[in-house]
Design a protein around this nucleic acid. Structure first.
Length: 749
DNA sequence: GTGCCTCGAGTTCC
DNA sequence: CTCGAGGCAC
């Protein structure tokens, strides 16, 4: 018999660790290399767990070759990255009962179900912890990954193996099964852990969620083993065989496989029942023994879930009904103005520190000028029109339990001398005029690159993750280099001349505080890696041009393929862009004049006036039209892009950068779906799926769905009752198929 | 002209 | 995470 871990002497523990290390190493080798396990999975798991427990009790005895540190086939370096086979998405939120009713209507209208047709949902508590994806191959746990950004998570396999609710081995499971759920800590375990830490003078956690997060993300799995983490399973990712036909049955199946599932999961047959269950869970909230922050509703029928599919970041078939956020009152000490990369002036509330939902908050966003004054962007009254003043007592909450916001003001506590806030009309960073354009909620600094705040924020954006993502050159380093006198980085091109300038400099980087030979060389090497090989869309996104985010940059890069292609198109389109800009200005001047004269003049839309002012040559017009014909690119984006390239100062900075880089041309995505890259049009009545569903499926397969038939149309799907579109398509020689043909083409419903 | 939907931009705290 | 606004379909 094994001696219990608590009873082991130190010498016994040391011998035991050696034995277990040997045993597990052999078992690992047998399993991975020879595919012939020498011990049963249960024995393997028990050995692994015992090893972790002994290490937790005698941390100083932990071996250099500790099995805890070895994950599956390879060692775990820090936290490796694991791409999710099926993306881990977040959920849409509902706050009011009406939001739940709207969710139900959205689902029904997407599926083409009448209002009174039966439609069942599951409802379960939303655990406030961290989501985790567990991969089982042939019943054995092989990988555990955090959510990460949804596409790629962190490898926390060694840590997950120490959690008792997570089985190492499951029977009668599909060959491949990814189980998803929430890691959390109970209230009781959290209190005990904190008092244990407090006794030892260690740091305590602010709340169970942080404690669970901190425990799971330990590099040393023996620490995780000593922390009382738990796990509820509620979903799945990749599967080699379906678990069940319904959500409810799938959850039952997970339970049979040995996972903990939440006992408050219910099947509900109407929004009324959903709300009732929500109310019931809310009433039990305080006595559950663990934190929850709402109730999750899911369409029960998995076939319907599949039809509903996903929007860009959330599934259409589920929603989180959140409990009202916790609020707190505190005093507003000051209002500061921050200047963003596009020059936006954002007011930030400096608050007397106050605890909201287990976190101490001392800053909160005030959105914009109108929000402070008590209006929303459309001019409607908010907070009963109460404005926010320095010195006021304000109510703070954390939107989505994350972002602190000021919700309300207590007028009865307003100091006599409190004055309405005067929003600055000049930039606090550079003194340039800060202007608010017609219809815009945001006031912006007009200083452009002259404004140090804008320059530095642009640089931070340039090195950010979606752009150049240079290791060792984050926001902190950018601030440091921006202020540097001998080795400054004031614009993106400066990054790529850093090494050369450093070499010419007496005050070398490696001799500075916090820097050495290795760190300086690592930085130069990281910069060089990106300089030699960077994707076109990343460069474009990195420039930080207004309206050009990641998606738009990708679309533009795909369309133009090369930097020179884009540059030429913009230069050619410039006269048309300038005509638009002038027409814009003329329109605004006209509106001002009309308003000042007290007339309600009817203003012509921009496009009608634009070319009345100044005819533009056909070449420029063509280029402009090519630009705004790109999916997702409209006049606002095209104008902003054109402006950036037309501004001499900005263009020079861009040219200096481009001259230093080797940019990869972008190829159109290759997709093997038969409709990928095709433009398709639906007409007539679809009987097997709704319009919205057909469109979503087509887009998911890489097709572009258009509303009208033109020369660019590749395929028309015509249902019964098709009329003029079908005739036009026939005239143009466009391929026409019926709904059944379409369903065959896309590989079934 | 109106109403989604997606994307961009700005934000806090650990 | 949220809000605003651009883009696009209806």
């Amino acid at each position: 018999m094994e001696i219990s871990v608590e009873a082991l002497t130190k010498a016994q523990a040391e011998a035991e660790l050696a034995r277990l290390a040997d045993l597990l190493a052999k078992a690992n080798h047998a399993y991975h290399a020879e595919d012939a396990p020498e011990i049963s999975d249960a024995e393997y798991d028990a050995a692994r767990r015992r090893n972790a427990e002994i290490e937790a009790r005698f941390p100083d005895l932990k071996r250099a070759d500790s099995p805890t540190d070895q994950v599956g086939a390879g060692p775990d370096e820090g936290f490796g990255k694991i791409p999710h086979a099926v993306r881990m998405l977040s959920l849409g939120n509902a706050f009011e009962d009406e939001d739940v009713a709207e969710f139900d209507s959205r689902v029904r209208s997407f599926l083409g179900l009448p209002r009174n047709a039966p439609l069942a949902y599951t409802a379960e508590p939303k655990i406030d912890g961290l989501s985790l994806s567990l991969r089982y191959e042939n019943g054995r746990l092989t990988q555990a990954a955090t959510r990460g950004d949804g596409a790629v998570g962190e490898n926390v396999t060694a840590n997950a193996r120490t959690i008792k609710d997570i089985p190492q081995q499951i029977e009668n499971a599909p060959e491949t099964l990814e189980v998803r759920g929430e890691v959390y800590m109970s209230h009781a375990d959290f209190e005990a852990l904190n008092s244990r830490h407090a006794e030892r003078g260690g740091k305590t956690f602010a709340n169970p969620r942080n404690a669970a997060a901190g425990s799971l993300r330990q590099l040393d799995a023996t620490i995780t083993a000593a922390r009382p983490l738990r796990f509820f399973a509620y979903a799945w990712g990749a599967l080699s065989a379906p678990l069940a036909d319904t959500q409810m049955a799938a959850i039952d199946r997970l339970k049979q496989l040995g996972f903990q599932t939440n006992p408050l999961t219910r099947l509900c047959r109407s929004t009324r029942e959903l709300i009732d269950h929500y109310t019931s869970i809310e009433a039990q909230r305080a006595t559950l023994g663990y934190d929850i922050d709402g109730v999750v509703y899911k369409v029960d029928d998995l076939a319907l879930q599949a039809r509903l599919g996903f929007r860009s970041t959330t599934p259409r078939w589920a929603i989180a009904h959140k409990f009202p956020a916790e609020t707190a009152w505190t005093r507003l000490g000051a209002i500061d103005i921050q200047v963003g990369r596009t020059g936006a002036l954002s007011p930030v509330a400096r608050l007397a520190p106050v605890t909201v939902g287990g976190v101490v908050v001392s800053n909160a966003t005030l959105h914009n000028e109108d929000y402070i004054a008590g209006r929303d962007s459309k001019g409607s009254v908010i907070r009963d029109g109460k404005d926010i003043r320095v010195g006021d007592w304000v109510q703070v909450y954390r939107a989505g339990d994350v972002i602190p916001k000021v919700a309300d003001v207590d007028l009865s506590k307003r100091p006599d001398d409190a004055r309405p806030y005067d929003f600055p009309t000049t930039c606090p960073e550079c003194g340039s005029d800060a202007v608010r354009e017609e219809g815009d909620a945001i006031r912006r600094c007009t200083g452009g690159l002259i404004c140090p705040a804008q320059a530095i924020e642009k640089l931070k954006h340039f090195v950010s993750r979606g752009a150049f993502d240079i290791e060792g050159l984050g926001a902190r380093q950018i601030e440091m280099f921006f202020a540097d006198e001998t080795l400054p980085i004031r614009e993106p091109a400066d990054i790529f001349t850093l090494r050369e300038r450093d070499a010419q400099n007496l005050a070398r980087l490696k001799n500075r505080d916090g820097w050495g030979d290795t760190s300086a060389e690592n930085l130069f090497a990281a910069i060089e890696t990106r300089r030699k090989d960077i994707a076109f869309d990343r460069v474009l996104f990195g420039l930080g041009i207004r309206h050009v985010g990641e998606a738009a940059a990708r679309d533009l890069a795909r369309h133009f393929a090369t930097w020179q292609g884009l540059e030429k198109a913009l230069d050619r389109a410039r006269p048309a862009a300038m005509a638009h800009r002038r027409a814009d200005l003329a329109e605004e001047t006209e509106r001002r004049r009309a308003t000042s004269e007290g007339r309600r003049a009817r203003i012509k839309p921009m496009r009608e006036t634009a070319f009345n002012i100044e005819p533009v040559e056909a070449d420029a017009l063509d280029s402009w039209n090519e630009l705004i014909a790109i999916d997702g690119v409209g006049p606002a984006l095209a104008l902003s892009l054109s402006d950036a390239f037309a501004n001499p100062r900005e263009r020079a900075s861009i040219d200096r950068l481009i001259a230093l880089l080797t940019i990869q041309a972008t190829e159109a995505p290759t997709d093997d779906s038969p409709v990928a890259g095709k433009t398709v049009v639906f007409t007539g009545t679809l009987e097997k799926m709704t319009r919205a569903e057909a469109k979503a499926r087509a887009e998911a397969l890489g097709a572009k769905v258009s509303g009208s038939v033109s020369g660019k149309t590749d395929l028309l799907i015509a249902g019964p009752g098709a009329g003029s579109k079908a005739r036009k398509a026939a005239d143009l020689g466009v391929e026409i198929i019926d709904e059944d043909g379409w369903i065959v083409l896309i590989g079934g419903l």
